[in-house]
Write a protein that binds this DNA or RNA. Structure first.
Lengths: 233, 233
DNA sequence: CAGGTTTTTATGTATATACTTATAGTCCAA
DNA sequence: TTGGACTATAAGTATATACATAAAAACCTG
């Protein structure tokens, strides 16, 4: 034992990874505890802790107090994906960005939205339909509901200049958000707005964000055919 | 100054978050350095470091040596999503899981797969089409290519018992993976396998995983209509 | 003043030590 | 045999200290 050349948490992490990959430690196995590993690696326990904590965060190890650390049995892989602002996404591809507001109104939301946003029945919300274009071609359109009670200042904002999303990101802090990703079949409305055929499969992101218990906004982004969201582990 | 009640990195993190949300520190602003915050909060610099590091990892702060720490200008929100094993996903909903192998063959892959998997032209790979069912109904089907050179033992495995994915997860370590999410329009083949109508929008995950420079497997999962992938920030 | 060198500084990390906390396991009593 | 109390243990965290490292800023020098 006591190799003694492990003097950074990254090197400890690499060695632990190596052992997992080499199946010296198999899925489900308990690995030695921090104190033992610290002795073996010739470093402080805090260094081992740092390495193992990072691996646990990425889902490769399961750690529980008193129980110990084990190699994940069913490694629920955690992919982290960046939720970009659409303008940056388009500009990042070297295309020119433009957006137009198709409709803007105050209206009582349909019951699905009303429930999702947890507002009382009959309350009017801001309803905004916008189209984002890349090099002049439809890229994605957003059907968005905003709760004005949760967004001071929204009434005064000119959302034709900055998109609603950008305005909200810049002006309203938020605690969290729900995302769901799915596919829909293009109906007449989607086909017209996105200039695609009826019956095409379209990628959809539904998102709501909230702050201090209030749902700020709920939006459905419907992307033009061919859109891909990409990520790596 | 020197409030002095911040004695855990979580409480420091909460206070920093509060200041960001309250716009005491605005996007783009530099915040005081670790040493100053440690004095103000009445804790050790390591504690401040732990709190700020976590916030930086989640994308809310930008940190650079010597330059300092600032509130992110365009907070690229990072959502982490769990990539589940399909069986667990189905069983987690209380449904019964079953899977069938539709076809299994060794074949030269089409050029797209061949390029993606970085194998030489003309090399035969294992091609596997499987259908996963929830409560007897089609849930998702997988069109998978496996590089046998990267997967010792796959020839001997009986993939009709355990699904290919489960077998691979349990037996072959991997370093990383590419994921992409998109929507397709159901053609005759998809409609038949998934028992849906032609022309419906279907959610699709394309994934390849690799280890030691070799692409192990590349799979396209095509989900039955209505599938949603969910995540929170 | 351009270009390179040195200094300064804020974050990054390692370590020993001490204490906290969750909890698996054990023990005991009803 | 069950269920609650106790205990031992492994991870989790805080702290002071020291040093490493990247990079901005200041300083030369030709």
């Amino acid at each position: 034992m006591s190799g003694g050349e492990f003097n950074s948490w990254q090197s400890v992490q690499a060695e632990v990874l190596r052992r997992i990959n080499a199946r010296e430690w198999k899925p489900g196995d308990f690995i030695p505890n921090e104190a033992e590993l610290a002795i073996e690696f010739g470093c402080a326990r805090a260094t081992v802790n740092r390495a193992l904590r990072a691996l646990a965060e990425s889902g490769l190890l399961d750690r529980r107090r008193k129980a110990g650390t084990r190699v994940s049995l069913n490694p629920v892989r955690k992919a982290t994906l960046d939720i970009p602002v659409i303008r940056y996404e388009i500009e990042g591809k070297g295309q020119t960005y433009r957006h137009t507001v198709l409709t803007q109104e105050r209206a009582v939301p349909p019951s699905g939205i009303q429930a999702r946003m947890q507002v009382e029945q009959g309350i009017k919300l801001i309803h905004l339909v916008t189209l984002h274009l890349a090099d002049g071609k439809p890229y994605v359109f957003g059907d968005r509901w905003i709760n004005p009670a949760a967004v001071p200042g929204i009434e005064a904002a000119d959302l034709t200049v900055k998109s609603a999303n950008e305005w909200l990101v810049a002006n309203i802090p938020f605690e969290g958000g729900d995302f769901s990703f799915s596919a829909i079949t293009a109906g007449p409305r989607e086909a017209e707005i996105l200039a695609c055929k009826e019956g095409e499969g379209l990628f959809v992101i539904d998102r709501s964000t909230w702050n201090k218990g209030l749902v700020i906004t709920s939006v459905r982004l419907t992307f033009a055919p061919g859109y891909q969201m990409h990520t790596k582990i």
